[in-house]
Amino acid sequence: MAMKESKQPIVVKRIVKKAAHHGGAWKIAFADFATAMMAFFLVLWILSTTTKEQKAAISEYFNNPSAFSGVSTAPSQNQGEGSGSAASIIDFEGAIDMAPESPQSVLLDPNQIEQVAAQQELQRLTAFKESLEAAIDQNMLLSSFKEQLLIDITSEGLRIQIVDKENRPMFDLGSNHLKPYTIDLLKELGQLINQVPNRVSLTGHTDARPLTGDYSNWELSTERANAARRMLIEGGMQAEKIGRVVGLAETVPFDKSDPNNPINRRISLIVMNKKTDAAIQQDSQLPPSELPSLLAPRMID
């Protein structure tokens, strides 16, 4: 009996585990969502209060911010006399300078907008020139004509000149009949040029050797330019991309020191920029009395 009374009681501890309290991660997600919605409605408000010109300027800035270096906004009309210039929000090496009391976006005059557009177009034509040169290197047919393809950027746009060589002319002598390899070359170029939206101008040139009879270098250069136009279209270039086809005979030689040099016999193809294209369209709308002054050949350096 004494042994039974000496036993120690057994205590059983039962631990009840409760679910952990949820964290605060949802608060961060909700805060991000609220911030994004606020920014979204702020953008909608800005778009509803800006003019068409201001929206165009904002679009140009985001497409090419570097082109706006040095451009500043007009002073606020609400700024009183003697208040001095307002403190800049952004003032980094003369970039965009905006007064805090003026909610207007960057204001550009028409000349500045035109300069920005011209700079962007020059960049696109330069990029197309690089891709065209790369295609010439990779294409077996085009690479065989590499020495006869002269590509450069001019004030009128991207110029591609196909010149004659002594032993490999583009046309039969004194004729507008294309050589078979010239046809293949023009068809390949037509596919490449069709990749850009710009319209093109075609000009035919000859050397100074006179032709017999009433058929002169003027007719020959014009007919050769038209023959090139037909092959470009047959190769895949859209017909409506042709903006001008002219023949200048021997008046604009490539080699001015030797008018009879075969390199003077060439087809000049210009992927026109907007300024040149607009000038051509404007010329076509002038009355006949004003056309003679426009027909004089223009030197392209």
Rank of each mutant, 00 (worst) to 15 (best):
204 G>N: 11
264 N>G: 07
225 A>S: 11
113 I>F: 11
3 M>A: 07
265 R>W: 02
41 F>G: 01
272 M>Y: 07
138 Q>S: 10
177 H>P: 03
229 R>Y: 07
243 G>L: 08
149 L>P: 09
105 S>I: 00
277 D>Q: 14
66 S>T: 11
224 R>S: 14
117 A>N: 15
96 I>R: 03
289 S>Q: 11
5 E>F: 02
138 Q>W: 02
93 E>P: 00
183 I>A: 10
210 P>R: 01
260 N>D: 07
155 S>F: 04
228 A>S: 15
68 F>T: 11
252 V>D: 09
54 Q>G: 15
161 Q>Y: 01
134 A>H: 06
108 L>I: 02
217 N>M: 09
263 I>V: 14
34 A>S: 10
206 T>H: 04
207 D>R: 13
49 T>Y: 15
157 G>M: 07
154 T>F: 12
36 A>M: 05
64 N>F: 12
188 E>T: 04
97 D>K: 11
210 P>Y: 02
263 I>H: 04
8 Q>P: 13
213 G>D: 07
208 A>N: 08
191 Q>R: 14
283 D>P: 06
206 T>I: 02
190 G>I: 12
157 G>C: 11
205 H>W: 03
264 N>E: 02
224 R>P: 12
238 Q>L: 14
33 F>G: 09
233 I>P: 01
104 Q>N: 08
208 A>T: 03
123 Q>D: 12
140 M>A: 15
115 Q>N: 15
27 K>E: 13
178 L>R: 07
239 A>Y: 10
144 S>M: 03
179 K>F: 05
249 A>F: 12
186 L>M: 13
285 Q>G: 03
40 F>L: 14
270 I>R: 13
271 V>Y: 08
62 F>L: 10
6 S>G: 11
151 I>A: 05
131 S>D: 14
37 M>H: 13
186 L>V: 03
253 P>H: 06
8 Q>I: 15
178 L>T: 01
193 I>F: 13
98 M>C: 00
144 S>E: 08
226 N>L: 15
254 F>G: 04
15 I>P: 04
182 T>A: 15
142 L>A: 06
50 T>R: 15
156 E>S: 08
233 I>A: 05
289 S>E: 10
286 L>H: 01
81 E>T: 01
254 F>R: 08
48 S>D: 09
228 A>K: 04
231 M>H: 12
297 P>Q: 08
70 G>H: 02
134 A>R: 08
116 V>S: 02
284 S>V: 00
196 V>P: 05
104 Q>P: 01
154 T>L: 06
189 L>W: 11
146 K>Y: 04
193 I>W: 06
148 Q>E: 15
108 L>Q: 03
135 A>T: 04
271 V>E: 02
